[in-house]
Design a protein around this nucleic acid. Structure first.
Length: 491
RNA sequence: GUCCCCAUCGUCUAGUGGCCUAGGACGCUGGCCUCUCACGCCGGUAACACGGGUUCGACUCCCGUUGGGGACGCCA
């Protein structure tokens, strides 16, 4: 029998990182074993489900590359099938009609909790097979009162739950709609699911669903309950931790390959390997190798892995994202071919695509002023006037604008003033990029191009020119350059 | 409260009775490289929760304690 797994989110919110991990493990395990990955939308709760949520989940899965082989199926379209199953169970004596009101049940639970018992329905309607007048009723499953349910969980090992722990669960609500456990069992059966892989918060549902399978005489699938993902406080990931949509990670400049890599390493490992491509994961991942303890989400390591993937990605994979983030940071991104030329210089300098956009932004803006204050104070003293002027002069006369010629020009200035490399490179860097950190200075000048480099040097010269008194300045202004005009206006 | 699950460095993990004075990775940190920032390279920091067994020998097996998590809905 071919393996069939399913990922079954309920569309009551976005797909967060924990759900994404469940989907990833399901998908990877299925890829590894040549099975079918089914997507099923669990929208039996019409009140809380929404189409927007479905769309966002689909988009998130697609971004991660976890497209289903089948589906999405919608449970809301299978209502009749669920109800037919429930009625068959009533007919065959596996289920009954319960007319107890919510108030009655709340009171019952309250009493049980107080006396230290596990809250569960007491079965007072157990023999009812017909409605009582027009009194509203729900359909309940008649859980065996004796014995226990045992299954060999592919991750957790043998789990046994005593039937005395189980409630007579509601199959159909008083408004006639099916509930979760009924819908899941029916769908898992009719969709031919052979392996139910889900979070361990579903362990308590498993014996209930197994009971439904048995009552209907269906073959019970295999189960694998994976440990949950926890927030930094050690509790199940929730919105309180700022558990956000996986799409938020795209906005923050993470690569899907990196997110998959990181998520896969939470609860799973392969020797001492840390970096995996999706291809490798598809060949290596198996749920039987999963650990049994919960893992805490660690953004620092995600960042490191993301940096790794950025470094090992081809420009083609990165360019559209770089352009997108540049656009969002307010600069008009140049054509992709032009971006391709500069991208390699930034691959080793960014942990996220957002960071990369920030770091290469200086190439595309009109002005890099105001300079980063600390760097300017440190590197742009009055003493830089002559070296910068000299460099500008030599660069102006350069016939070929290349790394080699720029280096040669630099060396001339260095030699003439007898200063070390750092004493010229840093001031030039601040003047060209506005900050004290950038790719190599020759590469920076080369990428920036002749016009922008010369212009920014000129602006820099003006910046380091000691503030003269106005009279003196006015005299100089006659027939002098743009930069001085600007300086005058500033005074 | 009841039931279920878990327990190795701060975090992710390797470890399946002797190879462990516990290995790797992130982080933090010292250094190298160096025009800056990264990358890269070399080094350091830091853990078997506790108590009983079993055994010639326990991180590894068993029991208990403690701690953490999950589940107890006409939510999924």
């Amino acid at each position: 029998m071919t393996l069939r797994t399913r990922f079954a989110p309920s569309p009551t919110g976005f797909l967060h990182i924990g759900g994404a991990r469940t989907a990833l493990f399901c998908w990877l395990h299925t890829r590894r074993h040549g099975g079918i990955f089914v997507l099923r939308i669990e929208d039996t709760d019409q009140e809380r489900s929404s189409q927007e949520a479905v769309d966002v989940i689909l988009e998130g899965l697609h971004w991660l590359g976890l497209d289903p082989d089948e589906g999405p199926y919608y449970q809301s379209k299978h209502t009749e099938m669920y109800l037919a199953t429930a009625h068959q169970m009533v007919e065959e004596g596996h289920a009954y009609l319960c007319t107890c009101s919510k108030e009655t049940l709340d009171a019952l639970r309250e009493r049980q909790r107080e006396s230290g018992e596990k809250p569960r329905y007491d079965g007072r309607c157990r023999n009812r097979t017909e409605p009582v007048g027009d009194k509203p009723y729900v359909i309940r499953f008649k859980t065996p009162s004796e014995g226990e349910v045992v299954w060999g969980d592919k991750i957790q090992g043998v789990i046994r739950i005593s039937n005395s722990e189980l409630d007579d669960l509601i199959l159909v609500r008083s408004d006639g709609s099916p509930t979760y456990n009924l819908a899941v069992a029916v769908d898992d059966h009719f969709m031919g699911i052979t392996l139910v892989l889900r979070g361990e918060d579903h362990i308590s549902n498993t014996p209930r669903q197994i009971h439904l399978f048995r009552a209907m005489g269906w073959e019970v699938p295999e189960y694998a309950h994976m440990p949950l993902l926890h927030g930094s406080d050690g509790a199940k990931l929730s919105k309180r931790h700022g558990a956000v949509s996986v799409l938020q990670y795209r906005e923050e400049g993470f690569l899907p390959s990196a997110l998959n890599n990181y998520l896969a390493r939470l609860g799973w490992s392969h020797g001492e390997q840390e970096i995996f491509t999706v291809q490798e994961l598809k060949q290596l991942f198996d749920v039987k190798d999963l650990g049994r303890s919960a893992a805490i989400f660690d953004r620092a390591k995600l960042l490191w892995i993301n940096g790794h993937h950025i470094r090992s990605s081809s420009p083609e994979q990165l360019l559209p994202e770089l352009a997108r983030h540049l656009g969002m940071s307010g600069v008009t991104p140049p054509p992709l071919e032009q971006l391709a030329a500069i991208l390699p210089e930034f691959q080793s300098r960014a942990a996220t695509m957002v960071e990369m956009a920030q770091k290469c932004r200086f190439l595309f803006v009109e002005s890099v002023q105001p300079y980063e204050e600390k760097s300017a104070r440190k590197h742009l003293g009055a003493g830089m006037l002559e070296p910068l002027t000299e460099l500008h002069s030599i660069l102006s006369g350069l016939e070929v604008w290349s790394i080699a010629s720029l280096e040669e020009a630099f060396n001339q200035v260095l030699h003439r003033f007898g200063i070390p490399m750092g004493h010229l490179a840093q001031p030039v860097r601040v003047v060209l990029t506005g900050s004290g950190a950038s790719p190599g200075i020759f590469e920076t000048m080369f990428m920036l191009g002749r016009d922008k480099t010369l212009h920014r040097l000129q602006v820099g010269v003006a910046y380091v020119t000691p503030p003269p008194n106005k009279k003196h300045l006015k005299k100089r202004v006659e027939g002098s350059g743009e930069a001085v005009h600007r300086l005058l206006r500033k005074l």
